[in-house]
């Protein structure tokens, strides 16, 4: 039986309107739609960086509001568009999350760098000396340091050049498989969506217009809105 990780029931706020859907364990979900559709606003509901005004969100069968917020956020990791690294070294960033609750194991540093394919010599390097792609890898490693079950990705490669974006994409794809993560990703790039995602949620004006198998949605859109979006 499929295990439901997230369930949204009648979720609404100033931007989003009456959202109803479920996300199962290990699903690779792409949130897509035009600018201003509410994609990032929806993404931030999963780890309570925002709260809806109405409706219920359940995480692993329990209302999301019943979890200790910091613990929920550790389990539902987020990678933003920009790396947003903290000043200091790569190591300072990697250990940030686990250190907050006294769970940092120094042996993990090497493992995390391996995950994101950075050499061990980078550990004590200042983050401002890294390239954009390297910074995003450190940011991903920092998120993975909390051992999340769900990975939220907010256009994680949109600030990078094509080649670097592809490299990050490969790292992401491998890590999501290896760690059996449930992935929810916002992206503008439909090619990337097809490469990384299996299921699509098409949002427009804060409404969920289509939900289904991503490949079928893109080849055979059911709604006029999605047809127009794909043509654009």
């Amino acid at each position: 039986m499929e295990h439901t990780v997230f369930q949204f029931q009648n979720v609404s706020d100033d931007i989003l309107h009456n959202l109803n859907f479920k996300i199962n364990k290990n699903e690779k979900v792409i949130l897509f739609g035009p600018s201003g559709a509410g994609k990032s606003s929806l993404l931030f509901l999963f780890n309570r960086l925002r709260d809806p005004k109405q409706g219920d969100i359940n995480y692993n069968g329990k209302p999301i509001t019943e979890y200790v917020i910091s613990q929920l956020r550790r389990k539902v990791g987020l990678l933003l568009q920009s790396p947003n690294l903290f000043p200091g070294t790569v190591l300072d960033n990697l250990k940030y999350g686990p250190s907050l609750c006294g769970e940092w194991n120094p042996d993990d540093a090497k493992k995390l760098l391996e995950y994101v394919q950075l050499p061990e010599s980078y550990l004590n390097r200042k983050v401002d000396q890294l390239s954009g792609g390297e910074q995003q890898r450190v940011s991903l490693g920092r998120t993975l340091a909390n051992s999340p079950d769900v990975l939220l990705l907010d256009e994680p490669t949109s600030a990078l050049d094509y080649r670097t974006a592809e490299e990050i994409e490969e790292v992401l794809e491998r890590l999501i498989e290896e760690h059996q993560l449930t992935m929810i990703m916002v992206t503008h790039d439909l090619k990337q969506a097809k490469r990384l995602g299996e299921r699509g949620l098409f949002l427009m004006d804060g409404e969920l217009k289509e939900d289904g198998d991503l490949e079928s949605m893109l080849t055979d859109p059911k709604t006029e809105e999605l047809k127009e979006f794909i043509q654009d």
Binding site: N47, L49, S70, Q71, R73, R74, G77, L78, L80, S82, N84, L85, F86, P87, Y96, G97, L100, C101, S139, R142, T143, N146
Partner: peptide
């Protein structure tokens, strides 16, 4: 952005605002 990143990693406001 950094504050959002810190909060999303499980930091409390006092920890996130340290910087």
């Amino acid at each position: 952005g950094r504050l959002m990143a810190a909060l999303s990693l499980g930091a409390k406001p006092s920890q996130a605002s340290h910087l």
